[in-house]
Amino acid sequence: MPRNPEEIVTEGIIEFGTGRESLVQLLTKVNEELSWIPTIAIEAIAKATRISVAEVYSVVSFYSFFSIEPRGRNIVRLCSTISCAMTGQGEILEALMNEFGIELFETTDDGRLTIETTSCIGLCDQAPAMLVNGEPHVKLTPEKACDIVRGLE
């Protein structure tokens, strides 16, 4: 069971404090643990840091790794920038979407998986590449990518 978002925020505040500069760290903590940032977490952070709710949303919506929509336990981020695009990223994405029955930026009904594309992840020498829950996977083929994702919890 995922933890209560407010509990995560409370823990984050002990770790990072309530200064303005703690905001991105607090959001990162919630986002990493829950895969997304629920409204109650935003409100709790706003209250603790005395930053307005809208301003917290502003920061959340600026960064592409943050999400205010629920996402899957596992997040696949497929690099869509040039070196990966040239080496078959499109086919891999197609394969993943077919295999798991979701569109880009969608989450499977069981909450297991979200597929996203992302800007260059710095693995161009081993393209095509993706990050799965932050871990790099390189020199992908459609089959290899599907195998990796299938093996996730």
């Binding site: 303005r20 500069e21 960064y63 592409s64 790794f65 943050f66």
Partner: peptide, 20 residues
């Protein structure tokens, strides 16, 4: 948190300060 612009040094500083 996923923003190319934060490679720009003042954007990076803003980000460190908890801002967009």
């Amino acid at each position: 948190s996923g923003a190319y612009i934060c490679g720009e040094e003042t954007a990076l500083i803003e980000s460190l300060e908890g801002k967009s």
